[in-house]
């Protein structure tokens, strides 16, 4: 009796716009139901379901295999199975590895930072040597002044003395005067004798200190260039694949525009609205990387700005520390 009653309903259902879709691999479904729903379950969402009320579902699937009813066509083998299973694959064979590239660039940055530290230590040493040589030169000049003053005094006293008799040699007078030479003049003579090339040493030290300062400036420039290089690598890496990846399929959906990534690849610039999005597979990884690298590019931009504002002497260390923070945040 019940079956008799149900047949008209079943017939009505069949005739009331039932549709069939030749199912491939379902990758996305978004459903809003209000009322009474009856679901027998699908491959994606198995299990029967009876619904009264409201139901909203947004889902993305990553199919790994599919089985479709085999249609006999030329070149198609259907003997083994009516539902042959085929794998759905997509590979992401990459030309470059962003992580490796960033690691290499970071290693270069560390080397250049070490070069800066070495150049800074060398500069400090050369400046210290320059100061010592400057002091030596000053002492040398003072010693020479003492000697010249003393010699002038001796010469003056010699002139005031009555001329010696012709038969007497002038030597004893000068010797007498010399013998009265104070100890400090003797010390000055010894100092001048020992440091005869003080002026040359000072000039050399001055030149070396200048060279060391130039080397430090070059090393700091190299660090800044390397920081810029890392920034460019990060910026240009937007959207580029990061390592070899392999998955089935990528699905990406969006519903609003409140999220974005910066793009720099292939001449496209600006923000891409990701919206209230979902994504699967390689696309999800790429978009996540793009989001992350755009964030790190922003961070490196700020680091570069910080370096410009910082005093030149500490700019390199400030930039390098900021870059370390950016790279740590990007991991």
């Amino acid at each position: 009796m019940i079956s008799r009653r149900i047949w008209p309903v079943v017939g009505a259902l069949v005739l009331s716009g039932c549709s069939t879709i030749d199912h491939g691999a379902m990758v996305y479904v978004s459903t809003v139901k209000v009322g009474v729903g009856l679901s027998s379950g699908t491959a994606e969402t198995p299990g029967a379901k009876f619904l009264i009320g409201v139901d909203a579902t947004d889902a993305a699937y990553v199919p790994v295999t599919k089985a479709r009813h085999c249609e006999v066509k030329p070149g198609v083998e259907c003997k083994r199975s009516d539902y042959p299973i085929t794998e759905i694959t997509g590979t992401n064979e990459t030309a470059s590895d962003l992580s490796q590239l960033l690691r290499d660039e970071s290693r270069k940055l560390m080397e250049k930072q070490a070069a800066v530290e070495s150049a800074r230590a060398n500069l400090v040493s050369e400046q210290s040597r320059e100061r010592r040589n400057a002091e030596t030169l000053k002492d040398f000049e003072r010693a020479r002044a003492i000697i010249e003053t003393f010699d002038a005094t001796v010469a003056g006293q010699q002139a005031d003395e009555p001329p010696p008799p012709l038969e007497q040699s002038p030597q004893p007078v000068e010797e007498a005067l010399r013998s009265a030479e104070p100890e400090r003049v003797a010390a000055a003579r010894n100092f001048v004798k020992a440091n005869g090339n003080a002026a040359f040493e000072y000039d050399s030290a001055k030149k070396r200190a200048k060279d060391a300062a130039d080397d430090l400036a070059k090393a700091i420039d190299a660090v800044e260039d390397q920081a810029e290089s890392i920034r460019q690598v990060s910026g240009n890496a937007d959207g580029k694949p990061n390592g070899n990846r392999h998955d089935a399929l990528s699905v990406y959906g969006t519903f609003s525009n409140n999220n974005s990534v910066k793009t720099g690849a292939d001449g496209v610039h600006g923000d891409v609205g990701l919206g209230k999005s979902f994504s699967t597979g390689v696309a999800a990884q790429i978009l996540a990387d793009a989001k992350k690298t755009s964030a790190s590019a922003d961070c490196l931009d700020h680091a570069a700005q910080l370096g410009k504002l910082a005093p030149p002497a500490s700019a390199a260390s400030i930039i390098s520390n900021a870059i370390k923070v950016c790279l740590m945040a990007a991991k």
Binding site: G24, A25, V27, T31, K33, G37, S39, K49, A248
Partner: peptide, 21 residues
């Protein structure tokens, strides 16, 4: 009719099937 079965009431559904990955 929907992909999972019929609904008596209101239904809005959107779906995508991939045939050639």
């Amino acid at each position: 009719p929907g992909s999972g079965g019929p609904t008596l009431g209101y239904l809005r559904e959107r779906g995508v099937f991939v045939y050639d990955p």
